[in-house]
Each structure stands twice: as structure tokens, then as C-alpha cells.
């Protein structure tokens, strides 16, 4: 499964970057969402894949029964997902505001601070 995941991550990164290179700020936001998803997926793959063995401990046991997936990367990705959402909502409102002020959704028209 790892080679397939590697290709998926590559595709995600490529599409994310392509969208971030557009001049339209809406496309930039879409690129940003793709990028954070791509990064999460990369981390998830790099930590090792395990089918059907979530890091849960049965109620009557003291420790895990058999091999389970590594819980630490999962915890880190969980944090990353939430933070990415925070960043996204901020960015979204920011471009909305920027559009209201500058009346342009073209990044090339926003390259100076003095306009």
C-alpha cells in the first residue's frame, strides 16, 4: 500500500502547488486546503500504515492486544487538522476583507503595501 500512498501524496502536493501558483486568491485558498491535507497524509504514511488495528485498549485489558497502529503520529495529525482549519478560516475571512478593500481578486494587484 505504501507505494500507492506515496503517489497519492505526490499528486496532492502537485495539485496544491499548482493551485497556489494561480493569481486568483480564491484558487490560492483551495491550494492551501489541499496542501494541509497533503502534509497530513504524508506524515500519516511516513509513520507506517497498519490495517484494522486502531490504538485502542479493550475495556477489560491493561494494555493493547497485539500490534496496533502508532498513536503518537495520529495525535500530532489531529492537532494539525484542527490548526489547519483555524488558519483556513482566518485566511478565508482575510481574503474576503481584502477583496472588499482592494476590489480585486488578482494577487498581482496586491503586491504593494501602499495601494
Amino acid at each position: 500500500m505504501e507505494p500507492l500512498m506515496a503517489i497519492l501524496v505526490g499528486v496532492m502536493f502537485a495539485t496544491a502547488l499548482y493551485m497556489m501558483l494561480r493569481r486568483s486568491i480564491v484558487k490560492l485558498i483551495i491550494g492551501l486546503i489541499l496542501l494541509s491535507n497533503a502534509a497530513n497524509l504524508l506524515f500519516f504514511t511516513a509513520a507506517g500504515l497498519e490495517r484494522g488495528a486502531p490504538p485502542l485498549i479493550p475495556l477489560d485489558a491493561e494494555g493493547p492486544l497485539g500490534v496496533v497502529a502508532d498513536p503518537l503520529p495520529q495525535a500530532l495529525i489531529l492537532t494539525a487538522i484542527v490548526i489547519a482549519f483555524g488558519v483556513l478560516s482566518f485566511a478565508l475571512v482575510l481574503i474576503n476583507k481584502a477583496y472588499q478593500v482592494v476590489q480585486a481578486d488578482d494577487l498581482d494587484q496586491m503586491k504593494d503595501t501602499d495601494t
Binding site: E2, A6, I7, G10, V11, A14, L17, L21, L42, T45
Partner: peptide
């Protein structure tokens, strides 16, 4: 597109070789 593809290929290669 070329820049994006380069990044994608690099990341894929990175995962494939380091996993």
C-alpha cells in the same frame, strides 16, 4: 504545471525511499 509536477515527483520519491 511543470514546477508542481516536479514537487509531486520529489515528494513521492522521498516517501518511497525513506519509508
Amino acid at each position: 504545471g511543470i514546477v508542481a509536477a516536479l514537487l509531486g515527483v520529489t515528494v513521492t520519491a522521498l516517501v518511497m525511499t525513506t519509508i
